[in-house]
Nucleic acid binder design. Structure first.
Length: 122
DNA sequence: GCCCTGACGTGAA
DNA sequence: ATTCACGCCAGGG
């Protein structure tokens, strides 16, 4: 039986936008459970196959997938991410590009972004 | 209760 | 880039 912590965690995971990824720790944080990244992993493991959860949008804090590269699960996650336009830059997802951090519109359109943005990128 | 194992994170070496 | 040691703590044995 899932307890409230599990339910909150699942709710947060459901909220990850398509085409974005976020980390176990970030989910824990947003669930009001800072420092409980492992619990997030546990919840996802419990959910397993019968999950209606976008588990593939959850990666480690450094952008690597949680599974051993080459494993069945790894390939499946990579495939699902690719289907949403999220690509692996080598062994990791570029969180600055696909990370669910802030409102993308705000980031791109705020005056600050124009004033302080370095010349790299666009 | 104690020990071990994790879909983790972070800081230090 | 890689390792290591911890911190975290729910479950299983």
């Amino acid at each position: 039986m899932p307890n409230t912590d599990h339910l909150r965690i699942q709710a947060v995971i459901l909220g990850i936008p398509t085409g974005c990824v976020t980390s176990y720790g970030e989910i824990a944080h947003r669930s009001g459970l800072p420092g409980r990244a492992r619990l997030v992993g546990r919840v996802l493991r419990e959910a397993g196959e019968q999950a209606a959860l976008p588990w593939h949008r959850v990666v480690r804090a450094d952008g690597r997938l949680a599974f051993a590269s080459g494993s069945k699960a790894f390939r499946e996650q990579k495939r699902r991410l690719a289907a949403e336009g999220v690509t692996l830059n080598g062994v990791r997802v570029d969180l600055s590009l696909f990370g669910w951090q802030r409102d993308l519109d705000a980031e791109l359109w705020s005056p600050d972004a124009w004033v302080h943005a370095p010349r790299s990128g666009h």
